[in-house]
Design a protein around this nucleic acid. Structure first.
Length: 167
DNA sequence: GCCAACGTTGGC
DNA sequence: GCCAACGTTGGC
């Protein structure tokens, strides 16, 4: 467990990834099971990565555009927001000419895998849970790839995933 | 600064 | 594959 961010209790987030593109199994194979979360190109999500997401925060790893749609496990933020260098790389998929090292537009954080759920928690399960009916990811039209999660929602999803009060 | 057109996301 | 929702672009 990384040390907590100074000055505030842990917050919780949901990070979306297309399972075809980068799934929790990819993360599990990374060195130290840690990766940088690059490619976010949306200002609202950027603001959260840059300003709000802190080491020690909990992250639900959600598979979008996959079958099944599901929370696959939980991660921990191990590095706070810093410039997304893939935006500077012309050969990268998410290259952005408007972002420069001197004045970066886009940010990323580092994530470490905490636990892949034995049984992933499907979107249908989430929807069936009254405690989660306000969860941002379940709201119609919510397309952000980074979303806030309440402590209650975090606990509920962890319980559904068979993880006992991990953090 | 408005808003129509367009592109993308992502659940279904 | 469809389409609703949303973000961005660009003409005016």
């Amino acid at each position: 467990m990384a040390k907590k961010a100074a000055g505030r209790p842990a917050k919780y987030w949901l990070f979306k990834s297309e399972a075809d593109c980068y799934s929790i199994d990819h993360l599990a194979k990374e060195k130290n099971q840690t990766t940088f979360w690059d490619g976010v190109r949306n200002y609202q999500a950027r603001n959260m990565l840059r300003d709000d997401v802190q080491p020690g925060d909990g992250v639900l790893f959600y598979h979008s555009n996959s079958d099944p749609l599901a929370v696959a496990g939980i991660c921990e933020v191990v590095r706070a927001g810093y410039p997304d260098h893939t935006a500077f790389d012309k050969s990268a998929q998410h290259y952005d000419a408007k972002s420069s090292p001197d004045n970066p537009t886009w940010y990323m954080v580092d994530l470490k895998l905490v636990k892949k759920f034995e049984q992933q928690v499907t979107r249908d399960q989430l929807k069936a849970e009254p405690a989660l009916d306000k969860m941002v990811v379940l709201q119609k039209g919510s397309r952000l790839s980074i979303m806030p999660v309440t402590a209650e929602e975090w606990k509920t999803v962890c319980r559904l995933g068979g993880v006992k009060l991990p953090m």
